[in-house]
């Protein structure tokens, strides 16, 4: 099998960056070991889709706008009516979802090679993300587990809150290098570590 290449290339530089002398406000990582699959329900099949997601991933996603769950390396969240992002570190995620979700229940698209997953973790994550996206990042407005679909400079991004100070971002692969650099510039003032 071909070796997957990160689109971040030479811009992914492990180590401390920006104003790191004042402390490390954020840790940025690329989650390049996960499969990313979109599942879409037909009208009326949302409960069956959520049951199938639960069977495959063990994550019980509530039927509520933007609701989601994460456990360990696995994630699932809604970002549009009847549409879900499913993320797990297994090569056969798409296959297992396809077995659990027949065409009568919904459709499945493997986005693994179309998106880049970036994790932003640390006490300044809300602050830095607020520079890029015009949505409410407070935990009250964006609770743990929930997902969002929004824009930065007209470019689509899916975001899930993992815990109080951690977010996963899913950006288009072809824009990932540019986004990664923008994220680094936004994080420079608080000092960040790339791992």
């Amino acid at each position: 099998m071909a070796e997957p290449q990160s689109p971040l290339g030479h811009t992914f530089v492990p180590g401390d960056h920006g104003n790191s002398a004042g402390g490390i406000g954020l840790v940025l990582t690329e989650r390049n070991d996960v499969s990313i699959v979109q599942v879409t329900a037909w009208r009326g099949t949302i409960p069956a889709i959520l049951a199938a997601i639960s069977d495959v991933t063990g994550l019980n996603v509530p039927d509520k706008p933007g609701a989601g769950r994460s456990a360990g390396e696995k994630s699932a969240f809604g970002f549009s009516p009847g549409r879900y992002f499913i993320v797990a570190p297994s090569d056969d995620l798409e296959e297992r979802l396809r077995k659990a979700i027949p065409l009568e229940t919904g459709t499945i698209i493997d986005l693994t090679h179309g998106r880049t997953a970036i994790r932003i973790k640390g006490p300044w994550s809300e602050w830095v993300l607020s520079k890029l996206f015009a949505i409410d990042f407070s935990e009250h407005g964006f609770p743990v587990g929930f997902g969002r679909a929004t824009l930065h400079h007209d470019i689509h991004t899916n975001i899930q809150r993992i815990d109080a100070e951690t977010f996963d971002l899913y950006v288009f692969r072809t824009f990932a290098r540019s986004f990664w650099q923008t994220l680094g510039h936004a994080a420079a003032e608080v000092g960040y570590r790339v791992e």
């Binding site: 706008p65 933007g66 009516p81 015009a134 949505i135 407005g141 679909a149 929004t150 824009l151």
Partner: peptide, 11 residues
């Protein structure tokens, strides 16, 4: 938005 909540018009 009935799904996403309040969003800026640019979206």
């Amino acid at each position: 938005c009935p799904y996403c909540g309040p969003r800026d018009v640019i979206e």
